[in-house]
Design a protein around this nucleic acid. Structure first.
Lengths: 350, 350
DNA sequence: TTGCTTTCCCGAAACGTTTTGGTGTCACGA
DNA sequence: TCGTGACACCAAAACGTTTCGGGAAAGCAA
């Protein structure tokens, strides 16, 4: 009849399943959410019909009725940065184990893009958002588009007092402190740092860790050796070039982000300096292909996967009204010593 | 009253907007989809209320009613491979310009994972799927979970006769042919190839391109120099090790995938051979950090972004019932000559 | 005045689920 | 025989939209 013709190549609904087995819609639903009373015989007939008709529940209708989608969103600033991929995968794996699906957004370090994603996810009525904000996203804006959706921050976190239910990252202060102390222990005194944008707590913490290590060695850091980049390769390259070709060339450069470390390495290669003999390089975050580089980069490794997992756990615990682990959760980092750092050449140490 | 209390911290609905401006729900809807007759005054009052109440339309309800979500899904085999990120970004950018959102899936080369994603996207009622199948996903399976959702394949495509509305990639035969001819022109005769799984048309085409170039040089390829890997670094490393330490060491290795090229490079470094002097290496796909490697890799570059854009265009054209460009769309590749290939040492050429 | 457009708005149905509050049947004990 | 649970199922309402068929009011021509 008409109705049948109308949905010729449309999706099959629960109603058609009901018709096929001669039962009511509510019985099918009960069988699907295997609850309530439904006899074994009926259940198997229903399962048969479902298989035969290739029925797939409509999550739009389900979410609408349930006022819950069993899904969370994660938006990261740069999918081409492997660190974030690992965070995403950690979040995905934990979520899957908790029966949540995750929607992925890639803001490319642009608040504009990020806002679009957040808005889109909000309209899709995800149950919560896991956010690594873009650097140009100043605090407080997210709640304007997300309403009172629960948010947990991973890796970066806003300085402004935006409301969120949790935050997970690494102990950035300690990580930078340890890394800097390592350079100091090699004999470096003129140590430069290329750090990220000062609007994220992450960068600020790393910078402070650097300062604290320098202070402990009674060195007052030279302001010209402190550069603020944009967490991408170009800006790492740019600032390293400034440092390497300026009058006050440092003996070591500490980059607080993996892409900037790569940019710095490119600059070193371009200027033709020997690394680590003439310039030591210390980076952040490991790559799966980091050992292919020459020299192999010494880096501070963050447990990216765990950050994603813990963040997802915090978020989902909150969504389900369960108490969760303490926030902020600060995970430990590890200094991976490879070939890009060595003691400075004698001539360089006054 | 009760209703109000119930939705204390829930989402605001179109009904509440209607109440706020003293209009009917249908009028708000008309204003939102700026169509029909709605007076300028009413429109501005509605806009005011929407802003004030922070109303966000519910895309679940919208999609349910419209039987259309204005979204597509893209599932790729490995998000940590930059090639796919570029494809995703291309697809995303085109889709955004056509007012579609895109949902991203990362199958990690596992059909199991891919099926989960496809199923989840299907239940979300995306309007179409852009698929780069996992290598262990044999043909024909996708339609079982996707029903008659339109699918377009990008990059890889199944050999089995699965139904799809389009396919876009590069001219793999020609790309491999050109690359191989380049090695031949340098004087190589013992050329090895590490190719991808034979179940994808892509790998088969590349292998055939290799054969055709070899044939044109009247060389019958040595079977022991033909290896089939898994498109990841480990397998590139493994097969390169076999080739480099075996009795029949080639003078050049052609890897038909970027990750396998990296693995091969690692193997070369490990064995301690000089590249390109003792062994030439030719890869597929470019990385943004490819120039940081030593030697800098010579590769076949694919227009990844364009692949994503064209694929999205094909899919969306189909969804909207528009005629689209011819399928399969085969885009040109480009050989990027850098430092990893050189003429073989005299001693090696018998 | 009447009749006819045009303009602006509204009520209700529908999309595909889940859930609530039933109803009918059967077995069983009194 | 009746009452009472236990069991198996069902009808209808609700979730938040869009769209369809009106319909009131106003303007205008006759």
């Amino acid at each position: 009849m008409r109705l049948k013709a109308k949905r010729a190549n449309q999706h099959v609904t629960i109603r058609e399943v009901a018709q096929a087995v001669g039962a009511s819609v509510s019985t099918i639903s009960a069988a699907l959410n295997n609850s309530d009373y439904v006899s074994a015989k009926m259940r198997s007939r229903i399962e048969g019909a479902i298989r035969q008709l290739r029925y797939r529940p409509n999550d739009l209708a389900r979410g609408l009725r349930l006022q819950k989608t069993h899904s969370i969103a994660i938006v990261v600033p740069d999918l081409s940065n492997n660190f974030y991929i690992e965070v995403v995968r950690g979040a995905k794996d934990y979520s899957a184990s908790a029966n949540y699906t995750v929607l992925i957004g890639d803001s490319r370090e642009s608040w504009e893009e990020e806002r679009n994603y957040l808005d889109s996810f909000h309209r899709r009525r995800v149950d919560g958002v896991l956010r690594i904000p873009a650097i140009d996203a100043l605090g407080g804006k997210a709640s304007a588009v997300l309403g009172n959706l629960p948010v947990v921050y991973a890796d970066r976190h806003p300085l402004a007092r935006d409301s969120y239910v949790g935050r997970v990252g690494v102990d950035n202060h300690k990580a930078a402190d340890t890394a800097t102390r390592y350079l100091l222990s090699l004999g470096h005194r003129k140590i430069a740092i290329i750090t990220g944008d000062a609007s994220t707590g992450t960068s600020v913490d790393r910078l402070h860790g650097f300062f604290s290590a320098m202070r402990s060695a009674k060195i007052r850091p030279d302001r010209s050796l402190i550069h603020t980049g944009h967490n991408d390769m170009e800006s790492g390259h740019f600032h390293a070039m400034q440092l390497l070709t300026g009058g006050q060339r440092p003996t070591a450069i500490f980059c607080t982000n993996n892409l900037m470390a790569l940019g710095a390495l490119a600059a070193v290669q371009e200027v033709g300096l020997a690394c680590p003999e003439e310039i030591s390089l210390l980076g952040f975050d490991d790559f799966y292909w980091a050992t292919l580089l020459r020299p192999r980069l010494t880096v501070v490794r963050q447990p990216a996967r765990e950050v994603g997992m813990i963040a997802a756990r915090m978020l989902i615990d909150h969504i389900e009204g369960r108490p969760s682990i303490a926030t902020p959760a600060l995970l430990p980092t590890k200094l991976i010593v490879r070939d890009s750092c060595s003691p400075p050449k004698k001539a360089q140490v006054r």
